[in-house]
Design a binder for these strands. Structure first.
Lengths: 149, 149
DNA sequence: CCTAACCTCTTCCTTAACGAAGAGAAATCT
DNA sequence: AGATTTCTCTTCGTTAAGGAAGAGGTTAGG
């Protein structure tokens, strides 16, 4: 069993496994790395314009258009006109049968089973951690992004 | 605060944040997606031959050679001759100052601080979860990989 | 021994993705 | 109203990455 003493190693292994799994899933549905990245950006940031998506993915306008083309053609995303500004377009996620979400679902079920093996109090600790850690990672990611600019 | 009721959403957000952060870090040090993937494979599986690495990354021999070339030139990896079989080469990870690990370190420190905010019993729950979840993800990744073959 | 199998690397070709620059359409400002 | 700014999209050229096929060196089996 793992203890806080070897926590660093345990955590690193966990992170690697998560990243590996995400990447493998993307590959299994024939998706490139930038596409997966963009999907995560949309999942976290909600619907946004191509310009905003390009900014957050670090792409210029040309590749951004084609990134959205790919995602739209694959059915992950939809282009919706902005009612307030007719120059703009809003890119929004779309539930896609047979898509990445379904490919990744088996793993999430396993995780769900693991989590349910804990007591309610323990589960509360886990979910509290998830929420806090997500914020920390998003902060750190923003810093990474700023450093590049 | 998060509760098990909205646990699915919380967890998805957490996963997206982790993946986003890894990808952003890789980009910040000028590393492609496959390179990051290979680094994770090596971190999880330990040193291995180019053939094995190629198999696990889903690459043929040509791109595998150049993948290792890139990683070696960037200082993340080292080629060592296999003492038992002189046809073989062993690729092993190398600690790299200024590399991906250091770029990602600030986030890990934040995570460390979060974890230390919990009681010892709660920390034990977290580390237990990390270990179990890593196994689950690795299993699921293997299944993904097999499905493609 | 000497042939067959194995492992890595090299070479050539194709494909995919990105950046830069500019066109077209719509909103904002004077 | 007219000019400027702001979006998105298109096009062109470049670069990076992957697949296929074969060469060179090494081990294993007849």
């Amino acid at each position: 069993m793992s203890t806080p003493e070897n926590g660093g190693a345990v955590y690193r292994r966990y992170l690697s496994a998560v990243m590996l799994h995400g990447h493998a899933g993307a590959k299994a549905v024939g998706m490139g790395a930038t596409d997966l990245y963009a999907l995560n950006v949309l999942g976290l940031g909600g619907s946004m314009t191509p310009g905003e998506l390009g900014r957050r993915t670090g792409l210029t306008t040309g590749p951004t258009t084609r990134l959205i083309d790919r995602l739209e053609q694959a059915g992950y995303v939809r282009r919706v006109p902005d009612p307030d500004d007719r120059r703009k377009i809003i890119v929004e996620l779309v539930a896609r049968p047979g898509g990445l979400d379904e490919v990744l679902a088996p793993a999430r079920q396993k995780i769900g089973a693991i989590v349910q093996g804990y007591s309610p109090e323990q589960q509360a600790v886990l979910f509290d951690y998830f929420a806090r850690a997500a914020d920390a990672y998003l902060d750190a990611t923003t810093e990474l992004h700023d450093k590049r600019a």
